[in-house]
Computed example of a mutant assay.
Amino acid sequence: MSQTIFVTGATGYVAKHLIFQLLEKGYAVRGSVRSMDSEGALKSDLIAAGIPEQTVTEKLSCVELDLGHDMGWDTALTGVDALMHTASPFPLDVPKDEETLIRPAVDGTLRALKAAQNAGVNRVILTSSTVAIVSYPQKPGGAAFDETDWADTKTSAAYPKSKTLAERAAWDFVANEAPEIALTTVNPGLVLGQPIGQRYGASLAVVERALSGKDPMVPNVGFPCVDVRDVAASHIAALEHPESAGERFASCGGYLEFSELAAILKAQYPDRKIATRVAPNLMMRILALFDPTIRGIVPALGQRAEVSGAKAQAQLGIQFRNVSDSLLETAAFLQKQDRI
C-alpha cells in the first residue's frame, strides 16, 4: 500500500508540480484547497499534464481547509504518512501593515504542524525560501549564502520577514513541543519554469514585468533561481532520505542579475521593448516611494546574494536544471497565455 502525502495549498504553482511528481512515483496525495470548487480544475490540469486519469481519480483527493482557522485540520491529516506544507501568502506589493503578511504565514505554519502532531504525523517537509537565508549587506567578496545562514528580521522587508519567522517558528515548535516530528525545510530561490495549468499566482511576476516593457531600466538586483520541477523533486528527495530530518536545504540552480535575466529575454524576443540598462540605485529608491512593487527590493539594491545549492546536490542527489532554460520556458508560457 502506497504512502499518503498531505500537500497544503494544492492548487499552488509549486504544489501542483509536487503533486504531479508524487503521483508519478506512486504516492497517494491528499491536498488542501480553499474551496472544493477548485478540485475539478486541479485534477483536469494534472491529467492534461500527463498523469493518467485513473491515477488522478484513485490517488488524489482534496479537502477544504483554511490556514486561518482550526476547523477540519486534525481530521484532514488523520491517516496520512507525511505533511508537505507549501501554502504561504506571496504578495506582489509591500503591505502597509507587515503583520497582515507575517501573522498568516507564522500562524498557518504552526496550525499545520499542530494538526500533524495531533494526527500522529511525524514527518513534515516545509517549503521555506532563500529569503529566509539571505541577509544584507552581502557576504565579503560576494560569497554564497548557505543553509547555516539566516535572514536578519530586523532589516528584512515584510515578505522575507514572514518566511523567516514562519520557518523559525516551525523549528522552535518541533524543538520545544513536538520532538517526535522529523522536520526538513526546502528553501527555494526565485522559482521559474512552466506552470501546470493556467493559474500560477505571483511567482512569475518578475518575468512578466520584464517582458511587459513597462520599465525603461532594470534594478541593480539579482536572484538565486531554481526550476519549479527541481523544487518539487527536492521535497520528495527529502522525504525519501530519512537522514534529511532536522536539516535545511537550499533549492537553487543558479543566480541571475536582473540585467542578465532581461538580456536573455531580449535575445529571445528582440522585437519586444525589454529594458536591459541598469537603473541607478538612487533612482530606484525614489521610485519605490511611489511604486509598492519596487519597495520590497530596496534592501537588495547593489547587493549580490547568491545561495549555494551544493548541499541538496550532495545529500539529496538533486541535479539542478539550467535556470536560463527555465526562464525561457517561463517566458514562452506567458506569451502563449497572452500575459505579455
Rank of each mutant, 00 (worst) to 15 (best):
K96A: 11
E99L: 02
R103Q: 09
N322R: 03
T130D: 13
L183W: 03
A210H: 12
L126I: 09
L265K: 14
L327A: 08
V226H: 15
A250E: 11
F249N: 01
H235G: 06
I196M: 08
Q303D: 15
A10H: 06
E39P: 15
F223W: 09
G120A: 11
A41I: 00
G246Q: 11
S244A: 09
G26T: 13
S326W: 00
T100W: 01
L334T: 05
N220S: 15
R199V: 06
N122P: 02
A263V: 10
N118L: 04
H235K: 07
G9P: 13
T153S: 13
S244I: 03
L327M: 09
V278T: 15
L316T: 04
R103Y: 01
D338P: 02
K59N: 15
S156P: 09
G189R: 00
E243Q: 03
Q54M: 03
Q303C: 14
I236W: 00
F258C: 08
S44Q: 12
D152Y: 03
Q198G: 11
E99S: 09
F333S: 09
P242I: 00
E306C: 06
V231T: 07
Q198R: 04
V218Y: 10
A10F: 13
L77G: 12
I133G: 02
R168P: 04
A250I: 02
S234C: 09
A170F: 04
V56M: 15
N281E: 13
T100C: 05
A48C: 12
N281L: 12
G201S: 08
V221S: 15
T78G: 06
S38T: 10
L239I: 01
V323L: 09
M284F: 12
A144D: 15
I102T: 08
M283D: 13
E306L: 02
D66S: 10
L77V: 01
V221R: 06
L110G: 01
V80A: 10
Y13S: 09
V218G: 10
A82K: 01
L301H: 10
R111V: 04
A238H: 06
I19R: 08
G68R: 07
G9A: 09
R277C: 15
A151T: 06
K139G: 15
A76D: 01
T293C: 07
L261Y: 11
P160A: 00
H241N: 05
T109K: 05
A182R: 00
L22S: 06
R168Q: 02
D146L: 01
T57F: 07
A158W: 05
D107E: 11
R304L: 13
E24L: 03
I125W: 06
I181K: 05
A82T: 01
A245D: 05
D97R: 04
A48P: 13
Y255N: 12
G12F: 05
L92P: 14
A115F: 00
V56K: 07
A115D: 13
L101K: 07
E167Q: 05
Y269Q: 14
G189Y: 01
